[in-house]
């Protein structure tokens, strides 16, 4: 009960957001907002979960997209398997969903146990090495993953509980609910004692240890949860593209997630989400008006970084005086 009162406001906001998102799906006939939002859900979860590592806990990971890719591939492969589909029938999607998250959780526990002992730059490089290792495995294990062509031939989406994920409205609604649940989960973790411990570790690891926080354990749990949330992002992308691609596990994908975070701002809870939208819009709008997309995107990023020296959301909030320096 006390938990509920503590997070009453957040839960209400979440409920409200779900309703708004669903209304958009129902009343906007044009397919663009749905397509746009689904890709935001997916990459937004990647960015938000990465910020749980970077922003909450101060663990700069260069290899977070590995878990996004793993979730996507696991989900896609399960639903492409005939025997899996016959065994679970109408429940296939739900089972595949949780199994994929679970697999990612196990994998990230192993990787995390090795990585979180290291500090800063070494942690960053080790996560990068593991991500690129996974990428090599995906690309060379052609018989299972389709190699560089990715999972081809579409992914089965059997109807469950009246939900048909090959229908774009159903798919959109399903993804928005999952997305908001994940964001709410991150929010609750952020505000809970767990989030408090993470911030203590981030600001001063020795002090945190002195205060009796079991640093290794807390960091590892944070790493696993962030990875599992990222895998949900991958699952949404797999549902959307009806395939999975090795580029998801490439280091540039992790890099892109970092830009999203930095564009929005790491100290604001929803900053990374705003960054996701911004990066997507920059990309799309620049493509519309210029054939020199790299040049223009580069200049915009340079201006944000060197001009504002912080995420856009942080900058605006400070300007308007909502957030104090």
């Amino acid at each position: 009960m006390s938990g509920f009162t503590l997070f009453k406001k957040d839960i209400s906001i979440a409920l409200f957001s779900v309703i708004i998102l669903i209304l958009i799906g129902f009343f906007v006939e044009h397919p663009w907002p749905k397509d746009f939002l689904i890709s935001i859900f997916s990459f937004g979860l990647l960015a938000m979960s990465l910020n749980m590592l970077i922003g909450f806990a101060g663990m700069v990971s260069f290899g977070h997209a590995a878990f996004f890719a793993l979730g996507g591939y696991a989900f896609g492969l399960l639903l492409q398997s005939e025997s899996f589909l016959t065994n679970f029938g109408a429940l296939s999607i739900i089972v595949a969903f949780f199994v994929s998250i679970f697999i990612t959780g196990i994998y990230s526990a192993v990787i995390g146990a090795i990585c979180v002992r290291l500090n800063e730059i070494y942690f960053a490089f080790l996560t990068l090495a593991f991500q690129m290792f996974l990428y090599s495995v995906i690309v060379s294990w052609v018989s299972l993953t389709g190699g560089d062509q990715g999972l081809m031939g579409g992914i089965a989406r059997p109807v469950f509980l009246g939900i048909d994920l090959s229908n774009s409205l159903h798919r959109y609604t399903f993804c928005s609910v999952i997305f908001v649940i994940c964001i709410l989960l991150l929010r609750i973790l952020n505000k809970s004692n767990f989030g408090y411990s993470l911030r203590l570790i981030r600001d001063n690891q020795e002090r945190a240890e002195f205060l009796g926080i079991r640093v290794f354990r807390v960091k590892l749990i944070c790493f696993i949860i962030a990875s599992m949330v990222a895998s949900v992002g991958g699952i949404i992308m797999t549902l959307f593209t009806s395939g999975a691609y090795p580029e998801w596990a490439f280091w540039t994908q992790s890099g892109e997630a970092i830009f999203m975070i930095m564009l929005g701002g790491i100290s604001i809870f929803l900053g990374p989400l705003v960054g996701t939208v911004l990066l997507r819009l920059i990309n799309d709008v620049v493509q519309m008006y210029s054939s020199h997309t790299e040049l223009v995107t580069g200049i915009i990023i340079m201006i944000v970084v060197l001009g504002l020296r912080k995420g856009l959301v942080e900058y605006l909030l400070e300007k308007t005086g909502i957030l104090k320096k």
Binding site: W32, E247, D284, Q287
Partner: peptide, 12 residues
């Protein structure tokens, strides 16, 4: 040359 980007841009 990214498959998911090509898919997304085609929709766009």
């Amino acid at each position: 040359a990214k498959p998911d980007e090509a898919a997304r841009l085609t929709r766009e």
